[in-house]
Write a protein that binds this DNA or RNA. Structure first.
Lengths: 151, 151
DNA sequence: AAATATTAGTTGCATCTACAACTATTTTGT
DNA sequence: ACAAAATAGTTGTAGATGCAACTAATATTT
């Protein structure tokens, strides 16, 4: 394989993944904005586990969202500024923050669900269930490949 | 479909794509660093078209890389600070910058090629060519779906 | 030729990210 | 019990991103 071919192949996947990531993020925010909702996809992703597991720790949020703990810290800062969540220190283990949705947070969450659905439909248009399954499978495999030690 | 299922399905794809994007970026930088090279994947992606098309404009770089023009502006700022590229104003159309690799830039580019190859191998381990093809096909389709007007 | 529109690129602002270094707290090992 | 290690979270720094508003230059329209 020539150098240029290596470049081509690598960049194709890297560029595609990056491009799709940016495009999905963008479309979600645009759709939310059209419904009068002010929230980013990353903020939404952090809200998800808080909705499902009231009082979840930041560490667990990071795990569910596959994000860095520093990212979670800062996104929760933003969510707290927006009065969507509150940090409640754990009574037993004082290292842990229990993150809880406010009333406002719960309402926003519900309001965003149709935006999620709309975005999902736009993303998946013309793509078969089987293709989506392969997509998920391959992406999961790549994630696993890269989780391994740098060897 | 229940709300929670909608959440699940959407987040799965969004999270996976984001996660893979971050992981690939990270692994590339780590691999480069191990070889004593200081460059990010995004900087590399911008170098690609400059290598292939000497004197390419920022607008065309943005197109090749599927990036926003503002991102390209700022990445080229960084590359210029690192003395890897220079901006040469077009003699005829004074709006356009012609981006050219410096000697240092050319050398770095060559040195990074093995890093690209190594990262590519790590990413693709245990994934068949057919799966990669499907991945590319589906990601391209999603890109196209989201390029359309917000309707 | 003058007014208008388009294009290439930059800048300010807000968000998201990784890494390293840090604090505070809890757990483990001896 | 006490020292060492692990854990949860925060902060500083630097890079990347989108959007809107902007400048400067070219192309189009009338």
């Amino acid at each position: 394989m020539t150098d240029k071919e290596a470049l081509q192949i690598h960049i194709n996947i890297g560029m595609l993944v990056g491009s799709v990531n940016r495009a999905m993020t963008k479309r979600f925010v645009q759709n939310a904005h059209k419904m009068g909702l002010d929230i980013s996809l990353d903020q939404w992703m952090v809200l998800g586990p808080i909705w499902r597991f009231e009082g979840v720790s930041q560490k667990d949020i990071a795990e569910f969202c596959m994000k860095d703990k520093t990212s979670v810290t800062r996104i929760i800062n933003t969510l707290e500024k927006k009065n969507l969540v509150v940090r409640v220190p754990d009574q037993i283990d004082h290292r842990i923050n229990r993150i809880v949705l406010t009333h406002q947070g719960k309402q926003l969450f519900q309001n965003v669900l149709p935006v999620i659905e709309k975005t999902r439909e736009e993303v998946r248009k013309g793509i078969s269930d089987e293709e989506i399954e392969t997509l998920k499978k391959v992406l999961t495999k790549i994630t696993q490949n890269l989780e391994k030690d740098n060897g």
